[in-house]
Design a protein around this nucleic acid. Sequence first.
RNA 1: GGGCAAGUGGUGGAAUGGCAUACACGACAGACUUAAAAUCUGUUGGCCGCAAGGUCGUGAGGGUCCGACUCCCUCCUUGCCCACCA
Length: 799
Amino acid sequence: MFYDFKKIENKWQRKWQKERAFRARINPAKKKYYLLEMFPYPSGKIHMGHVRNYTIADVASRFKIQEGYNVLHPMGFDAFGQPAENAAIKNRTKPDAWTHKCIRDMEDELKKMGFSYDWEREISTCDSDYYKWNQWIFLKMYEKGLAYKKASSVNWCPNCATTLANEEVIDGGCWRCHAKVEQKDLEQWYLKITDYKERLLEDLKQLPDWPERVLSMQTNWIGKSQGVEIYFRLKGLNKIIPVFTTRQDTIFGATYIVLAPEHPLVQELIKGKPQEKEALEFIAKVAKESKVVRASSDVKKEGVFTGSFAVNPVNNEEVPVWIADYVLMEYGTGAIMAVPTHDQRDFLFDKEYALPMRVVIQQPGANNLNPELMPEAYEGDGTQVNSAEFNGLPNQEAKIKIAAWMEKKGIGKIQTHWRLRDWLISRQRYWGTPIPVIYCPKCGVLPVSYKDLPVKLPKDAPFTGEGGSPLGKIKKFVELRCPQCKSPARRETDTMATFFDSSWYFLRFCSPEFSQGPFEEKETGYWMPVDQYIGGIEHAILHLLYARFFTKFFKDLGMISFDEPFKRLLTQGMVLKDGEVMSKSRGNIVDPDAMIKKYGADSLRLFILFAAPPETELEWDDRGLEGAYKFLNRVWRIQDNLKEKADSSLTRVLHKTIKKVSADFREFKFNTAIASMMELTNAIYQSAADKEVFSKLVIMLSPIAPHFCEELWRILGNKKSILKAGWPQADPDLLVEENITMVIQVNGKVRSKIDVPANIPEDKLKELVLADGKLAPWLQNKPLKKIIIVPQKLVNIVV
RNA sequence: GGGCAAGUGGUGGAAUGGCAUACACGACAGACUUAAAAUCUGUUGGCCGCAAGGUCGUGAGGGUCCGACUCCCUCCUUGCCCACCA
């Protein structure tokens, strides 16, 4: 007999919706729990990654409800973005209509999984009720000087005809379409996230419940490094070139310096030199290369001599000045001191052009380093040599002393450098939030006034697939009168990067219909911060960093009182098929909808939680899913064979299971929680359950297989929803064993086992153990050294 | 090149200093059946042994410990993230 999952799932999904079972409202009498998954892009279909992410969250949500928390569990759509425009070009649909159709389809699929969302809070970032507040936030940032416009060389995707943030360039290609990224000069809007770099770094300490990996990725991305800016005087010119280094201990080994080709002093340095022509050609060549190509490690390091010399301030040595592609203007001062013996990049460049080298850090223990014979740079620690008064010092100690000494002598300055850049938010696209700015030829850049928000995205736009923003082609949108002087003016036609939308949506969920501001402080005061955030590791850097930045900004505006938006973070692993990530291009997709049709949502949920712990990769297995289905049927059949009173041994197993499952749920260890419920089920098959035991199993299983358990719960005669059943408590008296099995080891190897009363005194236990005949062959004629007793577990005899 | 994970039966995985392989999948066998499916019940790391039992065994090698899948060191492999960052 199989249970009718189609009927049951449909029935309960409709009932939960009708009864608003997951409606969340402020209730000061109850402890709140805000559970959030990274909201999806509405592609129209959910994939297994979504199923996994949302199932993990849903179990946590339902478990917390049963534990008595007031749970907020919302869902919405990150609805702006490129695919809608691409679909518009391809299928002649409108992005708006296409997106809303996709949203409806995805809602249906999510509902079929039985997720416990408060659908009344659903938000969609492409609705003007939402993006109005993007514009509001932008204006606030503009007021505070955090949004600014800058002409700069940007990454340009020729395929998408749009700019990309550095963070969106992957291996020299566009993060979406993988086309080769070029360089282009454009006026762009930036957000000054660098103003928050110290706090973004420092406050990571407030997040002990984030995965170590993510914390380390964020730290590296912010990239604080302590070093010294050293001043090299240019020979023959009354100018100095500052260089930044974190290895000031190697300054005595700096045998040349290298400038980025774009460095402002380069033109002056090469002027009239024999190398001038060659240098100019080189600069022109590098200018054409994208930063990304220059940054790839397999490209040979190239450079030219400028014909000029600089003076190393620590020993007054004259060193040649070179320019090279591997030095970037964007980092540090755009100039480096080259120490080929102790920096591998300098070493490779040195070998290419046969420049001088000198060892200044001697490797401990090994033979003296010889610059001619070194196969590579020595970048490790050691003792200072050829370093004047610092000779003999360990280099880590010299680092501190040299920095202080340089500051004292005025030849350098201790400095901190950061890797984090400002965030480029302009996109030359249609399907995004219009940046609320007006350009007047007389009055200049004018922010749109708050009362005129939202600047609505026009519904009709020409989609030709050709480059440039479609918005720029809509006269009605672009042309207007300047609000100050009434002369003809233009609107900004750039839209915001969608990362902007997702940087504060977790706040909007607290009061999705609030019309006086982006969020209502009474609501965020109760619900925020998010207690548990769940999503993919691919958002470990950008999204989480931006969301943290926005949170700090709102705090500075006095709108919220906390520093960090997400208390705990869980990054779920990918879903694999045959050892590879599921993807359309690989053609190894398993469609969740087809699986729901075949086995039901409850079986799918059960399988996906049982197959692996949440953080690790999950190998898809059709047979595993079938196994989950069979297990549910096995539980279903228990109802046919209940007895009046369960055996006391079964009751003990039940209470052990309650303890284990409760602990595992709290730590998101769903795979082992399910395993122990399977063990309980096996025990029930050995010795029939009573209603009490069975009911408790059903409650424990209900967060995982909610429709199935709700149905069984009613079959067992309960009138109210299983969500109101409360979580079972383990009876401590039933957890205590009267007799336990002790493992007996001799020299660490298991040789015997004995059953003893749990409360046996140690000397009595020793006596029993030594009398154990099985041990005789191992103890014979050997002097007893000691006996180690681990209470309730084992005895180890050392001979 | 750097950082972080991970490496356990035929497979997914369990055990985070104390009985290695829980739980499940698969396989094999039995019961039920005219038969199959479903279901129920067993067996299932390698080697030696009729058996009792012994012995080897958690990527490789070493170390700490009464005792190591677990901690430390070296190496190998795989995955993810980052990368001319000076």
